[in-house]
Simulated assay, not measured.
Amino acid sequence: MSGWGASLGFFLPLGTVVRNFAKGGATTDSLRADGLWNALLSELEPADLVLLQLGHNDQKSDAPDAVDHYRDNLAAMVADVHRRAGRPVLCTSVQRRRFDGGRLVDTHGAFPTAVRELASELTVPLVDLTRRTTALLESRGEDGSRRLFTHLPPGAHPNYPDGVADDTHFAYAGADAVAEIVAREIQPFVEENVTV
């Protein structure tokens, strides 16, 4: 199991420093509460590119204002990065592997649209990973896309003695495929450092 941030450096120019602050299960609230956001800001150098991709777990909230809360939190993060002369990039959520009739089923509701609109409103770059990863998974098909995610039979790995079929978290192959997409999308903005 791996996130695309862990693989990103392999697809960027030699010498690019990638600092990955991503944490499984994180929300825009928990990043602050756990101190990860402050840790990221404390290491941020002027002109660093900061990639903000959340939403999987924010989306699980049943609060009626969950999308607005998520959007407000992202806007505050963008402002924090700008105050430190960093360069924020908003990313929509990566797609989950949920197929129906050969097409992926949307599981993120209004959250990706909120990110797209915020990027436009704040005039910050957008990497539309929801659309890009939808295309990736659909191009591989329901069976072929399975290898991009954490699927193991019983006994194949000591961490999963009973096996695992996780269609949200990437295997290394999936993390690499998404990192390659992100690297292509941010190439025009990359200077020296990237923070995820």
Score class of each variant (00 low, 15 high):
64 P>Y: 06
60 K>T: 12
110 A>L: 14
138 E>T: 01
113 T>C: 08
25 G>Q: 07
84 R>I: 05
179 A>D: 10
4 W>Q: 00
141 G>E: 03
41 L>S: 01
52 L>K: 04
10 F>K: 13
183 A>M: 12
26 A>V: 08
164 V>S: 08
40 L>T: 02
177 A>D: 11
171 A>R: 04
94 V>T: 15
126 L>E: 03
3 G>R: 12
193 N>S: 15
25 G>R: 01
54 L>K: 00
44 L>P: 09
196 V>Q: 13
32 R>I: 08
45 E>Q: 15
153 P>A: 15
171 A>H: 07
56 H>L: 11
160 Y>Q: 06
106 D>W: 04
64 P>I: 06
43 E>C: 12
44 L>R: 04
57 N>A: 03
77 M>W: 06
164 V>T: 11
25 G>M: 07
118 L>F: 02
73 N>V: 01
98 R>W: 12
162 D>C: 09
38 N>R: 10
124 V>W: 06
112 P>H: 01
81 V>E: 05
67 V>E: 14
134 T>G: 00
134 T>E: 07
94 V>D: 00
2 S>H: 14
188 P>C: 08
144 G>Y: 06
78 V>W: 00
175 A>L: 00
15 G>I: 00
152 L>R: 13
120 S>F: 13
38 N>E: 13
2 S>A: 15
180 E>C: 06
1 M>L: 11
114 A>H: 00
3 G>C: 10
95 Q>T: 12
168 T>N: 14
25 G>W: 03
62 D>G: 10
108 H>P: 00
146 R>L: 14
35 G>K: 03
48 D>R: 03
165 A>R: 14
45 E>T: 07
52 L>F: 02
192 E>F: 13
126 L>N: 07
104 L>M: 03
43 E>Y: 10
97 R>P: 04
109 G>I: 08
115 V>Q: 05
29 D>T: 09
23 K>S: 14
169 H>I: 07
50 V>P: 04
36 L>S: 13
193 N>Q: 11
80 D>Q: 09
173 A>Y: 02
164 V>H: 05
93 S>M: 14
5 G>I: 12
95 Q>K: 14
179 A>E: 08
28 T>H: 00
